[in-house]
């Protein structure tokens, strides 16, 4: 029986898996774009990790959107609980975690023991999620890794007033047609997204000293800056931001 444990987070956009050792240290990670047959994909990813780390027989805890589809999972837990547990394992303190994924954005108030004290999640609308950027950025031909530079170099934000993804897209097209600078629009888009996140977090912001950011969007420096600017305080990017849910899953008692 291996002392290793496996957590897998089947997100709407990407699927993440980690292997932890008995002390909670990360032994291996994997990340793939989510496929339509989520169960098969999870099984394959787990098999590969097991082969790589020798984690035969290790318990598998599943979380995320497709959590109920993992064959042989010893436990299934929601990504809300897992994110709280994961971020607490990484940072060891209470705070407000903002997890920005492809289709969902979550605000989770984590207490001093790593438990969920309160949470909120966006409604059906994708306006406050990574999807918002995914739809609009191609219009600007702004590569992901250049966003932070563009955000910082913009002399001022071009206001993007629509929060609806479809409306915002047409707004951006017309801003470009009016000759607005791409940098300014990039800044405006991220500011609008930050506003949306703040609205989602609502009163939880008042209940926490520190805001932490995870999820795929945390790799986007422009978002980190925009959120920090809106909150008036720097935002902590959680290490391994994409894997927080999977780490929390692996730490869940099977």
């Amino acid at each position: 029986m291996s002392a290793l444990r496996i957590g897998i987070d089947l997100g709407s956009t990407t699927t993440k898996a980690v292997v932890l050792d008995a002390s909670g240290k990360i032994v291996a990670t994997a990340l793939e774009r989510s496929e339509p047959r989520a169960g098969d994909q999870a099984q394959r990813m787990i098999a590969e990790l097991v082969r790589k780390t020798g984690a035969e027989g290790a318990p598998v805890i599943a979380t995320g959107y497709g959590r109920k589809l993992v064959p042989g999972a010893s436990k299934v837990v929601t990504e809300i609980t897992c994110h709280a547990r994961g971020v607490f394992a990484q940072l060891g303190r209470a705070g407000l975690l903002i997890d920005m994924g492809g289709q969902d954005t979550k605000a989770i108030l984590v207490d001093g023991t790593g438990r969920v004290a309160d949470f909120a999640m966006n409604d059906k609308c994708a306006a406050g999620t990574g999807r918002f950027l995914e739809v609009i950025l191609p219009r600007l031909q702004a590569p992901w890794d250049k966003l932070r530079g563009m955000y910082q170099s913009a002399p001022e934000a071009v206001q993007v007033s629509s929060t609806c993804t479809v409306f915002a897209e047409s707004e951006v097209i017309s801003l470009l047609a009016n000759g607005q600078a791409v940098e300014g629009i990039v800044r405006g888009l991220h500011d609008a997204l930050a506003e949306r996140v703040v609205a989602l977090a609502g009163r939880m912001l008042e209940m926490s000293k520190e805001v932490m950011l995870s999820g795929g969007v945390a790799n986007n420096g422009a978002m980190v800056d925009a959120l920090g600017a809106r909150l008036g305080a720097p935002v902590t990017v959680v290490p391994e931001p994409s894997h927080v849910g999977a780490i929390g899953a692996a730490l869940t008692p099977p």
Partner: peptide, 13 residues
């Protein structure tokens, strides 16, 4: 997910 997470939260995590 929200309902399950809520019940998990009430159950003390």
């Amino acid at each position: 997910t929200r309902i399950e997470a809520f019940v998990e939260m009430l159950g003390g995590g």
